[in-house]
């Protein structure tokens, strides 16, 4: 049974919470998260109170705490408040901390929508989160970033396509390769991930095409070995 007065007091504490404050003052909120499991109405109320704080000028530390709780209990209702933080360099990561794990399509859509508005490491972070979510709907947007002039963005897009590893992701990686050396290594790893997935799904011809693309002379020996091993598996040999 939750102690509503204690929860209210903890929400009050959040307004002035900052590094150096004893984190125990927020414990009632953490306990409320556990106590409201299975109680949709209580959860909705708790989520709304947390999300509302993200729209205020509470400290970065308070928003950090809120995002950690929304990571657990957040729904589509929290997505707008979280998505609004994606371009904010101080809070973008913690917004993704929640959005990456909230398994509603609105969360992925919000991150996809944010991509064109972001650059540099914040863009890389959102790309990575879409990859972790294995968001197949992001493949076209990620494919378009493989040729990005920012090598970090191109490499992150390649890695995310590897995380998604659908046949469409494999095709995108075959069609466009990043130019920077570091991004090329990401693309190679992503291509191997796609080929493994294609092979596991029985698409041997498509897997073979990916493996063959990775055995060029310019590749280090260990990558050629990985691709050759894959080609043998495509041929039914272990």
């Amino acid at each position: 049974m939750s102690d509503q007065a204690a929860v209210d007091k903890a929400f009050d504490a959040l307004k002035t919470y900052n590094w150096g404050t004893d984190p125990k003052v927020l414990l009632p909120i953490t306990e409320e998260v556990v106590a409201t499991h299975g109680d949709a109405a209580a959860r909705e109320k708790l989520e709304a109170r947390l999300a509302e704080l993200l729209k205020t000028d509470v400290s970065r530390d308070s928003k950090d705490f809120v995002c950690r709780k929304l990571m657990l209990i957040g729904t589509a209702a929290s997505v707008p408040a979280l998505a609004a933080l994606l371009p904010d360099k101080d809070n973008s990561h913690m917004a993704r901390y929640a959005l990456e794990r909230i398994q509603v399509p609105e969360a992925a859509a919000a991150m996809r929508d944010a991509l064109p508005k972001l650059s540099g490491v914040l863009k890389v972070g959102v790309i990575a989160s879409l990859g972790v979510r294995q968001d197949a709907a992001s493949v076209p947007a990620l494919a378009a970033l493989l040729g990005d002039s920012d090598a970090m963005v191109a490499g992150a897009a390649a890695s995310a396509l590897g995380d998604i590893h659908t046949p469409e992701a494999a095709k995108a990686l075959l069609a466009t390769q990043p130019s920077a050396a570091t991004a090329k290594l990401d693309a190679t790893d992503a291509s191997l991930a796609c080929a493994e997935s294609l092979l596991a799904a029985g698409n041997k011809a498509e897997a073979l095409a990916v493996y063959k693309s990775l055995i060029g002379q310019e590749q280090p020996k260990y990558i050629k070995l990985a691709a050759t091993r894959g080609m043998l598996l495509c041929a039914g040999k272990k």
């Binding site: 499991h37 990571m71 398994q103 972070g125 990575a128």
Partner: peptide, 16 residues
């Protein structure tokens, strides 16, 4: 679903 959300956590950019 809540337990599944704890299987991983988003990494701070640019790390993945």
């Amino acid at each position: 679903e809540e337990a599944n959300r704890m299987v991983d956590r988003a990494r701070r950019e640019p790390w993945q």
